[in-house]
């Protein structure tokens, strides 16, 4: 029996069930209802094909392990998350990387997912190629769904060339000036006073852009600033202690954010989607993707 079948049998055909990954963001969208059975998705990198720029991996694989496998080939995925997180966990939570401007949105990373549905049977969403519009795009729907529609067992991810060189800078400069001075910086953060910039690419280009930013008043720093723990959506100002991702509208702040207001018509549609995939509500009960601000 292969790992996916084992996972399927563990999920079973009835009873409330949730998947435990690294548990690093366990409370996002709400805790599983008490009494929900926990299962674990398969782990391990199955296949990495650099010339195809794809990697097949068990959803339970720690993201760190995946990175170790990819590093020697000079490739990376767009997945990003706290230490100890798993591939499946990152996909279920659905937060894009800080470096989204370079590596793309998380929702674009998942090419194929072998899942267990609410009926306890396996199905495949998406397909094995880097470009694919065959049928409905269930992969994007699964990313960020907190396991409420189906449980991912094995996933096929898009990879891409890792940057040859990376550099973080910061300076007391308006973020708009960075946009005007640089070509697609990987990340621009702003805390209301200080702008932090991540430049990535070929060394020759990064060095050149670093010198441009230096003239604007930036200095090199060791890495990303430490971000406060909670996420919110930018509403026009950057509160004390918060850091704004320029270009994505994601605000990292010290306190939990208010829940987002969801248009009732959208909520009804989302409700129909949930019922359609999981009529009895057995997958990750207690969790709601709409109970997460950004």
């Amino acid at each position: 029996m292969n790992a996916l079948d084992t996972f399927r049998d563990a999920v079973g055909e009835s009873g409330a069930v949730c998947v435990r990954g690294g548990g690093t963001r366990w409370a996002v969208g709400g805790l599983p209802r008490p009494g929900t059975r926990e299962v674990v998705a398969p782990s391990g990198v199955k296949r990495h094909d650099p010339a195809e720029m794809i990697v097949s991996v068990g959803a339970g694989t720690p993201l760190g392990d995946l990175r170790e496998v990819l590093r020697p080939t000079g490739q990376e995925t767009t997945l990003d998350g706290p230490d100890g997180c798993t591939v499946g966990g990152v996909l279920a939570v659905g937060h894009s990387s800080l470096r989204r401007a370079r590596v793309g949105a998380l929702t674009d990373a998942l090419l194929e997912a072998n899942c267990v549905g609410a009926n306890g049977r396996t199905f495949t969403a998406g397909g094995p190629t880097v470009k694919n519009v065959t049928g409905y795009d269930l992969c994007r729907l699964l990313v960020g769904s907190l396991g409420t529609l189906a449980l991912m067992g094995e996933v096929l991810l898009r990879t891409r060339p890792a940057p040859e060189h990376a550099m973080w800078l910061e300076g007391e400069v308006e973020p708009d000036e960075v946009a005007a001075a640089c070509y697609r910086p990987s990340c621009v953060l702003w805390d209301g006073t200080t702008t932090s910039v991540c430049l990535e690419g070929y060394q020759v280009d990064v060095v050149e852009e670093v010198s441009i930013l230096r003239r604007l008043g930036f200095r090199e720093v060791g890495g990303s600033p430490v971000l406060p723990p909670f996420r919110a959506r930018w509403a026009g100002n950057v509160p004390e202690g918060a850091v704004l991702e320029i270009g994505t509208g994601v605000l990292h702040q010290p306190l939990p954010a208010d829940l987002p207001l969801v248009d009732p018509a959208v909520a009804r549609l989302a409700g129909r989607v949930k019922v359609s995939f999981d009529p009895t509500g057995r997958l990750n009960p207690g969790r709601d993707p709409y109970r997460e601000a950004a």
Binding site: A105, G144, S145, R233, T248, G249, P260, V273, A294
Partner: peptide, 13 residues
Amino acid sequence: EQGDSVGLDLRGA
């Protein structure tokens, strides 16, 4: 307009 979807990525679907 910016950033990841709130809730399900119904746009992506």
